[in-house]
Every structure is written in C-alpha cells, then in structure tokens.
C-alpha cells in the first residue's frame, strides 16, 4: 500500500520509468493502480534511435511487473514522510 499511495500522490509529475528490457520512457504520470501498473502521458523514449517503433507512442500503459526503476523528481520526495510511512507499514499498519 505504501508505494501505491506514494505514486498516487506523484500523479501529474514527470518521471522516467526504466523497464527490465532496458527501455526507458519519460513522461507525465497519469495514473497508477494497486499492482503498480503505470500510465504515462506525453511520453518520449530516452534512446529513441534504438526503439524506432516507439516514435508515435504518446500515451502508454506499462505493466508493473516489467518495471525495474522509476526515477523520481526531487520535489516529489519528502524523506521524513517516507520514513514515517515505512515505519508504520513495517509495524503492519
């Protein structure tokens, strides 16, 4: 629940999602669900030349299970809030 809530609060911000197949996509976070499936808008692929088939993709749905990383915007990270939420979650809250 912690990261689902976290990503819900991040909606509207720019993130870079890096997939397990090395494809990296930058875009505006449009929505997220409980599986951490992600929808991005106004997307652009970081290494466009390597992925020509992605040229006209503007919006996309990414299956949560194929995500390796999400690069987060610094203004979307409140470390104190995250520490508290993590301790609460660890207690089974």
């Amino acid at each position: 629940m912690l990261f689902f809530s976290y990503f819900k609060d991040l909606v509207g911000r720019e993130v870079t999602v890096e997939l397990k197949n090395d494809l990296a996509i930058r875009g505006t976070l449009h929505s997220v669900d409980q599986y951490l499936n992600i929808k991005l808008e106004n997307t652009r692929v970081v290494d466009q030349d390597k992925y020509p088939h992605m040229l006209s993709v503007r919006n996309c749905f990414i299956r949560g299970s194929v995500v390796r990383y999400v690069q987060l915007p610094p203004e979307g990270v409140d470390t104190d809030l995250l520490h508290d939420a993590t301790r609460r979650e660890a207690r089974g809250g």
């Binding site: 951490l36 390796r68 999400v70 690069q71 987060l72 610094p74 979307g76 990270v77």
Partner: peptide, 11 residues
C-alpha cells in the same frame, strides 16, 4: 548517479 530512485523489489 540518480538523485531519487524507486526500485522494484522483484529484481
């Protein structure tokens, strides 16, 4: 280097 990174646990 990346300032803030979410890492998916299955990896």
């Amino acid at each position: 280097n990346v300032q803030y990174l979410f890492v998916r646990g299955d990896g």
